[in-house]
Amino acid sequence: MASVNVDLRSVDGTEAAMGWAAGHTITVDRPDGKAGGLGLGFNGAQLLALAIGGCFCNDLRYTAHTMGVALGKIAVSVRVDMEGEPLLTTNATMVVQCETMDGSDPQAVIAKAKAACMVANSLRQGIPVAIES
């Protein structure tokens, strides 16, 4: 079984958090004026959308390499819809555009990446989330 660990800690002088994994960091915060937020970083919904789209971008590249297809430009947009109290994500929609370097149809690459995308497939199936203190 593979695992990934990330850590988050509060940022002194703010109510934001800094998250890191290996040598990469990201700032997490609420919008300016909301519950002490200063708008210093991404909120949870934005992070969820970035996880969905970012994982898919990586899987497009992994899949293309495996298939021997050279990709050019990739454009991925993700919308997450939320409602309720507490607020829950009710739907996520991803629009994918990519080009192959030889001008061939990229649909086979997109379809295989869709089948392999860890984040999208995990969310589709539902995953348990344990919160311990």
Rank of each mutant, 00 (worst) to 15 (best):
M18A: 00
P128H: 11
A16N: 05
I127Q: 01
V11M: 07
S10K: 06
V4T: 10
F42E: 06
V96M: 05
G41L: 12
V28W: 07
G53N: 07
V76L: 11
T89V: 15
Y62F: 15
A35P: 00
A116E: 12
L40M: 14
D59L: 12
L71P: 08
C98A: 05
D12C: 00
A115D: 15
D102C: 02
M67S: 03
I52F: 13
L50T: 14
S133R: 11
S77I: 06
K34L: 13
V11S: 00
A70Y: 02
A111K: 10
M118D: 12
A22M: 10
E99W: 01
M101C: 09
D59V: 06
R124D: 03
N43D: 15
V96L: 01
C57G: 13
T63H: 09
L38K: 06
G53M: 08
D32R: 06
L47N: 04
W20I: 01
T93E: 15
Q97M: 05
P106A: 08
E15S: 00
R124P: 00
L47W: 12
M1G: 10
A111I: 02
A45F: 05
G37E: 04
G13A: 00
M118C: 09
K112P: 00
G39Q: 02
V119W: 08
A21T: 14
H24L: 13
L50M: 13
C55G: 09
A49S: 10
A116N: 14
A16S: 03
T14D: 04
D12A: 00
A49L: 03
A115E: 15
S104F: 05
R61I: 10
A21R: 12
V69C: 03
C57D: 15
G23C: 05
R79P: 01
K73V: 05
E83V: 02
A21D: 06
E132Y: 08
P128L: 03
V129M: 03
Q107E: 12
L50D: 09
Q46P: 07
C98W: 06
M18Y: 07
F56L: 13
D105Q: 12
T25G: 02
G23K: 14
T89Q: 02
A130E: 12
T63M: 13
G13E: 04
V119P: 09
M94P: 00
C57L: 07
L71I: 10
A111F: 02
I131N: 08
G84M: 02
M101H: 11
D105K: 08
G23P: 03
